[in-house]
Write a protein that binds this DNA or RNA. Structure first.
Lengths: 173, 173
DNA sequence: GACAAGTGGTTGGACGTCCTACTATTGGGA
DNA sequence: TCCCAATAGTAGGACGTCCAACCACTTGTC
């Protein structure tokens, strides 16, 4: 299926607003390279989030919920404790609660008690959840996850740079 | 001032969860490079947002509001119509309304009517707004905008890659 | 065994983003 | 001139994220 890139709803500017801001920053404040990189990450994330969510909306999912489904599909039993989900997805416990609430309301996952630790809640994906994940994965691969304009080598380069940032930030060890 | 990297509140994993997911994806679904890159962008954006917002919180700002202040400081008259702010910051009109509401509540900006077009609202930064922006800029440069682990060349490389994505997505022309 | 500290999860509130829908104003064309 | 499409901004709602606070349960220590 041909993928129509997510043109911004409001007419694009004839210049790069981030680059423009970086030039002004350089003139008035100082070195702008870091600021420009951070702003770029913020903006690209927003673009990707928008593209991905648009592709998932017809299937009643968001990227956050989709990630949770994938995590469960990849787990051995199709089930994980909520705190483990939070660690893997790098989410605050309240975000996990929020996401699981909505997945459960759509009957894509179930909540069950942990057999030995009564504090823990175990989330299990349902058959409907597995099917929904499969369909959503197709929708996302069709649009290349919204990531356009880079070849394979550049994508690998991007991943390497960002992984280094996460490592330096203590995301994992 | 020494900057303490934003260690995740929940103990870091001994492995990279994104890389782990990418391996499983490769085994079960197919090529995982794009998925890994997109997930990396999402996660790094989240880390940066957290670091930046933490640095700005003592000054009563968020990154979104800070960006709006910078945009106004860089403008000739210290004032811009709301729709122009939306174009430059790549924000939905409702987001601009939200941000300007809060900046105005803090007396950092003012709303005024446009002299000739009675539909448009012109936002003007106040003297307090200019001072606040200066202080906040110091707080952000102190922590390098939360971007850690890359040297100057890598930062430039990252910016180039992300700019290409934005160009391909039609963010500007 | 009892108590203190730590862990797992939820609730309520704040924030930023987007969408849909709406009002007010402008400007172009019949 | 008048109508209608386009534009500027706002209101209300949904979603995801975080924080602070809280309760239930577990674990370690005395």
């Amino acid at each position: 299926m041909a993928y129509c890139a997510p043109m911004p709803s409001h007419h694009p500017l004839p210049f790069d607003p981030i680059d423009r801001a970086a030039q002004l920053w350089q003139d008035r404040i100082g070195p702008a390279a870091t600021m420009a990189a951070v702003t770029n990450i913020m903006r690209v994330q927003q673009i990707l989030q928008s593209s991905v969510d648009a592709a998932l909306r017809p299937h009643g999912l968001t990227f956050a919920r989709y990630e949770a489904l994938v995590l469960l599909v990849f787990s051995r039993q199709g089930s994980l404790p909520m705190n483990v989900m939070g660690q893997r997805l790098q989410l605050h416990p309240t975000s996990v609660t929020n996401i699981v609430d909505r997945l459960q309301a759509d009957h894509l996952v179930e909540r069950n008690g942990h057999p030995t630790d009564r504090r823990t809640t175990v989330v299990t994906i349902t058959e409907a959840g597995r099917q929904r994940q499969k369909i959503a994965t197709g929708a996302l691969t069709d649009i290349d996850f919204g990531l356009v304009g880079l070849d394979d080598a550049q994508i690998a380069q991007l991943t390497a740079l960002l992984t280094e940032v996460r490592r330096a930030a203590g995301d994992f060890s």
